[in-house]
């Protein structure tokens, strides 16, 4: 607009910029700085904190390797399963008359806090078959009651009754049990977003494919999934960020015990229980490094949206 004073926009932005500066920008810079200082942030220690993470000298107190591996598990399994389930549910719910009810029942866990979800699932996973629903189901199917949150064995040993274990380490039963809770909470999100994307596909395009000779599977595989891929990327990036930052759920359900720590819980332990700000900051920087590619993707996507607006 002609005649608007140059500082007017800055006046409108000031409160937001101040808050973001203090609570997000400054901390990022400061954390990077602290990750090169010692536990009291007094003297420069170079890459020692990072070396601590790589060397994993105290596996019993803070098992950095296990935390990193577990985070990778969260990233891949949590994201993969949730996106796949969300996509399946989006397609299925769109084809029935009770779509609203079906969606609500899948979606409700979204509104629940991680803390409440943790209580719900500790209850579900309870070892005592008179209390734990999962174990009651397993035993009534002829299986053995399992301590889902403590069992560090792999699903293979569980299935073959404590037989050989050749699966890679972080694929532990308790990790999978935790990840499933995450899936339970986030599938609704994936379903809702993907289903909106699905509704955005013109029915005429799907009909054209049908007339062109495609069967239902070919329509899904060669028309729906490619057209939906930008939406799938949006959902996946959101879930990856969630998987990376996963804290509350693990913290309340296991407290990181039995090798279930992730980087965020280990960071919390280092910084606030052990009192080593240096290692804590280094762990936070590791998280940030993992997020960076997603940041780049988000920015690219945003720029693309702006261009095509």
């Amino acid at each position: 607009m002609v005649g608007r004073r140059w500082w007017t926009p800055w006046l409108w932005l000031a409160p937001a910029l101040a808050l973001l500066g203090v609570f997000l920008v400054y901390p990022v810079v400061d954390t990077v700085r602290r990750s090169f200082l010692d536990e009291r942030s007094k003297s420069f220690v170079g890459l020692d904190n990072y070396r601590f993470i790589i060397d994993n000298p105290q596996p019993l107190v803070s098992d950095t390797h296990s935390a990193l591996l577990n985070n990778i598990m969260w990233l891949t399994l949590f994201t993969g399963i949730t996106v796949a389930l969300g996509l399946i549910l989006a397609v299925l719910t769109g084809r029935v008359r009770y779509e609203a009810a079906a969606k609500s029942s899948i979606f409700i866990p979204m509104a629940i806090s991680f803390v409440a979800a943790a209580v719900i699932w500790r209850f579900m996973y309870e070892f005592n078959t008179d209390i734990g629903t999962v174990n009651a189901a397993v035993t009534s199917a002829g299986g053995e009651s399992t301590d889902w949150l403590r069992d560090t064995g792999s699903p293979q040993t569980w299935l073959t009754e404590r037989g050989p274990d050749t699966m890679p380490r972080p694929i532990q039963i308790n990790n999978l049990a935790l990840i499933f809770v995450g899936v339970w909470m986030w599938t609704g999100f994936a379903m809702v977003v993907l289903s909106a994307g699905l509704k955005g596909i013109s029915t005429e395009v799907l009909e054209a494919a049908r007339v062109d000779g495609a069967n239902e599977w070919q329509i899904f595989r060669r028309i729906i999934v490619p057209i939906l891929s930008p939406t799938i990327v949006v959902v996946a990036t959101t879930l990856v960020i969630q998987g990376l930052k996963k804290f509350d759920l693990v913290w309340v359900m296991t407290g990181g015990r039995a090798k279930t720590d992730v980087v965020a819980t280990l960071f919390y332990k280092e910084a606030f229980r052990v009192g080593d700000f240096g290692v804590g900051a280094a762990l936070a920087v590791v998280l940030l490094l993992w997020v960076l590619p997603i940041m780049v993707i988000s920015i690219r996507r945003f720029q693309f949206q702006e261009e095509t607006r």
Partner: peptide, 16 residues
């Protein structure tokens, strides 16, 4: 601002 969307909150806790 878009970039800040993905900063893990944990990271900001100590400095704040």
């Amino acid at each position: 601002m878009v970039a800040l969307l993905v900063v893990p909150v944990q990271m900001t806790l100590i400095p704040v």
